[in-house]
Write a protein that binds this DNA or RNA. Structure first.
Lengths: 246, 246
DNA sequence: TAGTGGTCTAGACCACAGG
DNA sequence: CTGTGGTCTAGACCACTAG
């Protein structure tokens, strides 16, 4: 036989079972038999359906997870990933506005808030001296009910007196503007793929060591002063980053 | 620099073995017993050392891989990840300059180059009509010998006559400037975590379905015309993205 | 309490890489 | 050819979630 597509697929002949499972499940999703946030059948059911073991089945689920096609909630099961949110980290638009503009339902939950001695990383970001005290607000944010983001905000307290007594479930952006007359100016951000730290995986109820997108934002106000920084841990399959240069 | 060092004690009794292995191996790396691009002992050796099975051992290796601490080359073994490259996608600086500024050794390899009928996605990016013909250049790029990037460049041929006869192993940025008087202007980029497509995993010799960072860049010249776009697939643990707003 | 995912065992065969 | 990683089998117990 001459050059046909079979030769192209040699590397697929490895991993026969896993590939077949991946194709079958993504077929269900593409054909709408399963839609956003639907739960997949139990692992034992699937492994029987595909006449294989749970180990192999979980290998396939792991690959679909890496592609961002499905996600899991710890000890609850596997679910179909909803479409990604388009996120421009340079933009001032806040989380709730961003989600709503894209037809999604946002929600915010405050885990805790207080004044702490800042870790050295934070002092460096905020250009504060060692052992400075800062406000720390930890929140999780949901889209359509699904917890997608764990974030720690560190605020230079000089600019935000008594902010801890305000309602922190709404947008900090609005609070800054309405109560303190402070608006976001220049932003600097860093981003790297890694895994969730323990505090985040607990709060989001994802498996320990799930992959995550870690984004650091350092925010200045309209006068160029560094006012706060955010450490954001996003579920791996949540975001589609888009940035346009000025 | 990585906040995500292995110092997290993992939750209580779950994942006892895997956690112990992860801590041991990251200990070796932090204490310099293993350094950048060193190969780890064989899986069978490690699984015996930790008195466990290869399945469990591979679970641990997979977690270290997700953290970006180690990487694998298909059927060759596991290696210690070198430090990440700092990458600003909005910057005009080209790959070789970027790598050298950070004390690394860059290399480029052209896989193929030719004139093709553009896929519709590409026409959309370049704002060309359906079934346009474009130049396509596929390359892989290395840092310190390790293949880290698979990239497809799509060029609007109107601006680059006869470019396929030039030396394409060097910087396109320089070729554009020196031969065509075209310099990069505004850039727009999108980024999302996913897995390598087959062409990329083959070229980079990474496992099929390894996680990857997919970056699309749409480049304009000094007159604001869209001149080309890049589809870049980076190894997951290669980059530390940093962007500063103007 | 029942059923789920999370973890782990103890093997096995294959395809490919390197000597 | 030898050793490697890649894949797969057929079970098991535990921890947690949901009803």
């Amino acid at each position: 036989m001459l050059h046909n597509s079979a030769s192209f697929c040699t590397s697929l002949s490895r991993q026969k079972t896993v590939t077949a499972i991946c194709q079958a499940i993504s077929g269900w999703i593409e054909q709408g038999e399963l839609t956003h946030n639907d739960r997949l059948p139990a692992e034992r059911v699937l492994s029987e359906q595909f006449t294989t073991t749970r180990i192999t089945l979980r290998e396939a689920l792991g690959q679909l997870e890496a592609q961002g096609m499905i996600y899991r909630e710890v000890r609850r099961g596997w679910f179909v990933s909803p479409p990604r949110i388009i996120y421009n980290p340079l933009q001032r638009s806040h989380f709730h506005a961003m989600a709503r503009e894209q037809g999604r339902k946002p929600a915010t939950e405050v885990l805790d808030a207080g004044e702490i001695v800042a870790p050295e990383v934070i002092n460096a970001h905020l250009t504060l001296p060692s052992r400075s005290r800062v406000y720390c607000i930890r929140r999780i944010r949901r889209i359509d009910g699904r917890a997608v983001l764990y974030v720690e905000h560190y605020l230079n307290p000089e600019y935000f007196p008594a902010i801890l007594h305000e309602d922190l479930t709404s947008s900090l952006t609005e609070l800054y503007a309405n109560t303190y007359g402070i608006r976001y100016g220049k932003v600097r951000f860093a981003m790297l793929p890694t895994t969730f730290p323990l505090a985040a995986s607990r709060a989001l109820k994802v498996a320990d060591n799930s992959p995550a997108l870690f984004i650091t934002r350092i925010n200045r106000d309209q006068y160029g002063r560094i006012i706060d920084c955010d450490l954001e841990y996003w579920r791996y399959d949540t975001l589609h980053i888009m940035v346009e240069a000025e």
